[in-house]
Simulated assay, not measured.
Amino acid sequence: MVLVTGATGILGRVIVLELLKRGKSVRATKRKFSNLDEVCNSLKFYTENPNEFFNRIEWVDVDFDDIDSLRTVLNDIVEVYHCAAKVSFHPSSSKKMYHTNIEGTRNLLYACENSSVKKFCFVSSIAVLDGLNENGEMDENSDYNPKLDHSPYAVSKHFSEMEVWRAAAEGLKVVIINPGIIIGSGNWNESSGLIFKNFSKGLTFSGGTSYVDVRDVAKISVDLMDKNIFGERFILISENKSYQQMTDFVRKKLGKPAPKVIAKSVLQVGQVLNLFLGWLLPPLRIANKVNIESVTTFNKISNQKIKEKLGFEFLPVEESLDFHLNNYLNDQRKN
């Protein structure tokens, strides 16, 4: 049996579906207040038989602070896909994010010790990458540099990765994936599910980042585990795109004019206001140095390693955007 944590998230649900399509039995973790109806509804975007697959999932509530609870959840589990994480770029979320992402991962790995678990796939992020190769791109050798400033999210993912590598050194077969911004359907109000709301706005930033379709991430994750490829990390991105390119595409599809780019100087004014008024106006706190740098820089990232390892061809970003944007609009009309 396979365990997928964070199975109600935009990626976790699609990994669950991919596993079920391959005939595997899946136990999926959720929070007590998770909306399973929304998860089931979103599966219709990926299969003609959403209810059939959904009814095969064994859902469990889990407390990542309770090792005994985790050991119970891991009973008869051979493979784990650890997708559960908190994603936020607001400073007020730092403490909770560190706890959820680092402590949660550590506890899960402790629970895996002396259990039936043989394989472990950890979902990290491109946010942990630092440094460029000879082609001016980030790749799997772009190791996290502790001397640089990072977002709390990047810090949490880096230390989570350290926990995974510790478990690997102790004998667990692990693989780490580092996806770019995931484009998917459902979970529209959380994490990367918000991209269509954000891209439909009339403002954008001068930087850029890397994107990947959720279906590609799910397929590659399961392929790596099935092919017993362990002890490595793999960057999963389809293309590098500027925020303006992404926003232009979405707004054109919506029949809206091109967005206006917010100049870095304007954001720096927000940073100054944050220094003086952040204590009074919490939304201003997001205008800090790290966040401003992240939306005004554009580091290209390489996907050559995974393409060569699996011979994988990624879905083009515009094809992905078109597919998931249509799903988003269809859901909005119904609601």
Score class of each variant (00 low, 15 high):
Thr209Trp: 14
Phe323Gly: 08
Glu313Arg: 12
Ser221Ile: 04
Val60Thr: 13
Lys289Gln: 09
Asn75Trp: 12
Leu315Gly: 03
Ser88Gly: 00
Ser142Gln: 09
Lys252Arg: 13
Leu172Gly: 04
Thr296Phe: 12
Tyr328Gly: 02
Glu52His: 00
Ser238Tyr: 02
Gln245His: 03
Ala258Leu: 15
Thr5Gln: 06
Gln304Cys: 06
Gly180Ala: 09
Phe196Trp: 11
Lys227Ser: 14
Asn299Met: 09
Phe323Ala: 00
Arg71Lys: 14
Ser25Pro: 01
Leu20Glu: 05
Leu281Tyr: 13
Pro146Ala: 03
Asn35Val: 08
Lys264Gln: 15
Lys197Ser: 15
Ser94Glu: 15
Glu313Gly: 00
Glu137Ala: 01
Leu254Lys: 03
Ser221Gly: 07
Val117His: 06
Gly278Trp: 05
Thr296Ile: 05
Leu277Asn: 02
Glu308Arg: 15
Ala7Asn: 06
Asp143Cys: 00
Thr5Ser: 14
Asn133Gly: 06
Asp223Phe: 12
Leu108Lys: 13
Glu161Tyr: 09
Leu19His: 08
Ser124Pro: 06
Met246Arg: 04
Asn291Trp: 11
Ala169Glu: 13
Lys305Gly: 04
Phe205Arg: 03
Thr47Leu: 11
Asp76Ile: 02
Ile57Ala: 10
Asn141Trp: 04
Phe249Glu: 01
Leu315Ala: 06
Asn240Val: 08
Leu224Cys: 10
Ala218Lys: 07
Asp216Gln: 08
Tyr243Asn: 02
Leu43Gly: 07
Asn189Ile: 14
Thr8Pro: 01
Val261Glu: 08
Met138Ser: 02
Ile301Pro: 02
Ala287Lys: 04
Ile306Lys: 01
Leu108Pro: 13
Trp279Arg: 08
Leu267Trp: 11
Ser156Ile: 03
Lys24Met: 14
Arg251Ala: 05
Ser302Cys: 01
Asn114Met: 09
Asp223Ser: 14
Ser302Thr: 01
Asn51Gln: 15
Asp149Lys: 01
Arg106Gly: 10
Leu148Pro: 01
Lys119Arg: 14
Glu239Asn: 11
Gln244Leu: 13
Thr100Pro: 10
Trp165Arg: 03
Asn135Lys: 01
Ser34Asn: 13
Gly136Val: 07
Thr8Cys: 04
Val269Cys: 09
Leu11Tyr: 07
Val261Lys: 11
Asp65Ser: 12
Gly131Met: 10
Ile77Phe: 09
Val39Thr: 13
Cys40Asn: 15
Asn288Glu: 11
Asn303Tyr: 00
Ile176Asn: 12
Ile181Pro: 04
Phe33Val: 14
Leu236Pro: 07
Arg215Pro: 07
Asn51Ala: 03
Tyr153Lys: 06
Val80Trp: 06
Leu3Phe: 12
Glu79Ile: 00
Tyr81Ile: 06
Ala127Asp: 05
Gly6Trp: 04
Ser238Arg: 04
Glu137Val: 02
Cys83Asn: 15
Asp63Val: 06
Glu319Arg: 05
Arg71Asp: 01
Asn141Gly: 05
Val272Tyr: 13
Glu308Met: 12
Asn41Trp: 14
Phe234Asp: 02
Ala263Cys: 09
Leu267Pro: 10
Thr29Asn: 09
Ala84Lys: 10
Leu224Glu: 04
Asp331Cys: 05
Ala167Leu: 04
Glu137Ser: 01
Ser69Ile: 07
Phe298Val: 08
